[in-house]
Design a protein around this nucleic acid. Sequence first.
DNA 1: AATCTGTGCGCAAACGGTTTCAAAGTGAAT
DNA 2: ATTCACTTTGAAACCGTTTGCGCACAGATT
Lengths: 341, 341
Amino acid sequence: MPTLRDVARLAGVHLSIVSRVLNDDKKTSVKEETRQRVQEAAEALGYWPNALARGLKMKSVGSLALVIPDISNPVYAEIIRGAEQEARQSGHFLLLASTAGADPRTLEFMQALLEGRVDGVILANALLDDAVIDALEAGRYPYVLVNRRSQRARRYVVADDAAGALLAVNHLIERGHRRIGHLAGPPTADTALNRKLGYRHALEAAGIVFDRDLVVEGSYSTESGRIGVQQLVSLPHPPTAVFAANLRVAAGAMDAARRLGVRIPDDLSIVGMHDAELAELLSPGLTTVRLPLEGLGREAVRMLLRVTRGEPGPEQVVLTGAELVERESVRTIQETAHSAS
Amino acid sequence: MPTLRDVARLAGVHLSIVSRVLNDDKKTSVKEETRQRVQEAAEALGYWPNALARGLKMKSVGSLALVIPDISNPVYAEIIRGAEQEARQSGHFLLLASTAGADPRTLEFMQALLEGRVDGVILANALLDDAVIDALEAGRYPYVLVNRRSQRARRYVVADDAAGALLAVNHLIERGHRRIGHLAGPPTADTALNRKLGYRHALEAAGIVFDRDLVVEGSYSTESGRIGVQQLVSLPHPPTAVFAANLRVAAGAMDAARRLGVRIPDDLSIVGMHDAELAELLSPGLTTVRLPLEGLGREAVRMLLRVTRGEPGPEQVVLTGAELVERESVRTIQETAHSAS
DNA sequence: AATCTGTGCGCAAACGGTTTCAAAGTGAAT
DNA sequence: ATTCACTTTGAAACCGTTTGCGCACAGATT
């Protein structure tokens, strides 16, 4: 691991010159010949600046962290991709850190991350202790929430979940469904709340009376989808369609339906939220609403970089642009007793 | 962001004392009362050591990186989980970095990562330029390959892919299949080669003659599975079963089969390699071989930490313990013309 | 010849820690 | 009173960078 000193020795100059040459410092001039020598020496030694030393001096290390609770959730894959691209484009390093269930330790975790390792963090945790956010605000640490908003957090970038949900439910309504269930996400998650809101608005706009029995709350897991669908189909007057708050929930619901002998879409239509390869691999293919998740990632990085540089700019952004991806999980209901009555 | 100096000032001692107290230095004794004062001062200020400064001095930052090509691949999720647990247990920080297609830049990427940001790297890239490995070896950087071996790499931890493949194919043979196709992975991936090897060995052991037409090579992608299955079923004498080298390939194959009107398992049985939630969500549920991926992650971290500490130990480990997870994608073939002849 | 204006380079002080070494203080033994 | 051993603390070097500042030397100006 050669240092500036080594390069300087080889080139026969002082290390400060090496630093200036390598950083292309405009404020001091160095003779063309010296510049050459330095560059050759650096090349020969395979010199690479030490990120630690530089970071210590500069108070910035050129990397950002994206903290995610669960790597295997496909939702994050897309956010990550977007964040990664944006970070790369602006010459930054994106590091991923998973909190992997170690919830109580999240705060220390963040501390350790922020005390030098990275310049700022993007938090994608759906469930996040308010204490963590308070600590970040108090410590004036550069952070931004992505796909999640909070009373306490000043900065976030989210998708328009309500509009997306509206899209999904409207699709079912257009297809003739009147009795539509909702497999909702965890009430602690902001996204889940907004999706439920969109669901209600869609019903309302269509003049369908909201039936409390048709929404079952759970978590964003396949298991939750399984349980929920079971609950819905065993209702005295079961729904003809369900809107699942999440791709995993939808997948779980389909899985359970299959085991229960409920055919999709013949017996039950289903539309999910968020699109990923999984939606296509399911059988039948799952109709979903595609959210601009990649954009979320990009925007979050942009905002974070602005914060680290102390530049002004929007601090809450909600990205619109949800769109329906039709596959095979929804059937059209013919006009029946309902409309005839 | 308080520093040692701040704490020292508040406690009325020299900063070196603070360092010693906070690090619980055994080699120097400090008066109990002073210790108290220092600890209180640190507490009051919310002092947290700067990872950069410490790392610069100590030549170790307490974090490791796991480099993965594609976050969305479920195979990695499990490796990550194992690595994470092991890292946490030994007081280290695991950072994830995705190379996300930026192949040509992998080397610089690694450089940037290793020059201070982390103490060592675990590479999970299935496809990895030899130049990268050579550079790592030449630079004496702490690294280990996981789920991948290479001629050039001294250190790796892998699963026994051949044994796993054997398990999968034997299962098909036991179920009466004689004409078994193989959707192989990329010939550049070590795992793909070993799985193909296991496939051939299984056939051989059962006295089934190897038919070159029955193996189609591709990549570890769903698309590859789609193309492969199409190719196999359009053979003049198509197989009754296929062994897919990978979960994604299997999923793609099932998807394509469905669209082609080939029923699974009635018309075609399929077994995949590697287990994840996806296998269960597919319809029908996919029979797969479960590989000890979590163990791979754990073992890789252990090995890497040994390397960074300069401790001796095994440098190539292959983890056994693959097991078959039966679901619904394989049907039993009754004795027919084949065995009767 | 003395002064001025640049150019090209080196010195040294940070950045925030860890750790070696020596000095100061304490009490007991000589 | 002096020596000694031991505890407690401070001073300073160092890790590898960046950067403000000053020095030396060149050529141009008076």
